[in-house]
Amino acid sequence: MLYVVIVFLWVALLLYLLLGGADFGAGIIELFTSEDNKAKARKTMYHAIGPIWEANHMWLIIAIVFLFVGFPVIYSTMSIYLHIPLVIMLLGIIARGTAFAFRNYDAVVDNMQKLYNKIFVYSSFVTPLFLGIIAGSAVSGKIDVHATTFLSAFIFSWLNLFSVAIGFFTVALCGYTAAIYLVGETNDPAERRRFVRKALQMNIAAVVFGALVFISAGADNIPLAQWVFGNPVGIAAVAAATLSLIVLWYLIYKGRARMLRLLAGFQVTMILLTTTYKHYPNIVLLKNGEYLSLIENKGADKTIEALGWALLIGSLFILPALIYLIYSFQRKD
């Protein structure tokens, strides 16, 4: 059952990165869209994400609950040492979630809309940035449980080049998946072209920040290259992701929207796989080479057992309903 729980944890993380990520990305795209086209892009996005909006963000809650029920030591260690970025991320979640609801359900449409939009786009940027920083910090080896000063315990645990580079990489990835997703959500050729251009820009940004991640890993003495390329799975996944980029750009010029989505999803999956495969099961690396392993820090056996069953039975209800929801609100062409 432990493995069922771990697999679900990974899948929840992946789905949050994909679905929640595309959702954040929609805001990021809006941030970088010129004033003239904003209103139109907003409308397309609203149609695309409105109905599945709430469900997209459930994955984060699911992941966090698994963590505190199944792996409480990991949850509490991260909560203590990454307190500050977690709070910033939460503020982003509050701002974004409420601004999204306000701008869509406010009965009066007036200047307040401008404010909601501003809050929405900026928090769409900040939230994944800090999510990335938190994820990066977990593996950066900078969390120091023996720290004696405030700075080394609560600031340098996350404020380092590597974590910040991962943050920006996450933002670019979200923008990229969103742009690819949105290409299939519009029939207007001009708008389509705009989304394709955004996808290209975000793709370049992702590559640039990806390179930065490697450079900063070197600067921070993190053996990232060895994690990624030191094993066949990592090499294969990176190769698959890179090769699929070529296919992807071919498909864009052919206008095959649905295939595109699958492919972008595949790429993100490969990226998460490479970054997690070598670490597993040590998902939090601490200073001095200590680490927190999923296996060694699991909760009581009965709890893991019950959690596993709850997951298996729960997903029997959730997955069909979710798939039907997504299917029902797809733009039909």
């Binding site: 609950v65 505190f68 029920v69 909760g299």
Partner: peptide, 14 residues
């Protein structure tokens, strides 16, 4: 949470 999570967490996961 470190101690209570696995004990009282079941309802949260449901």
């Amino acid at each position: 949470m470190k101690n209570a999570g696995p004990i009282f967490g079941m309802p949260f996961s449901l």
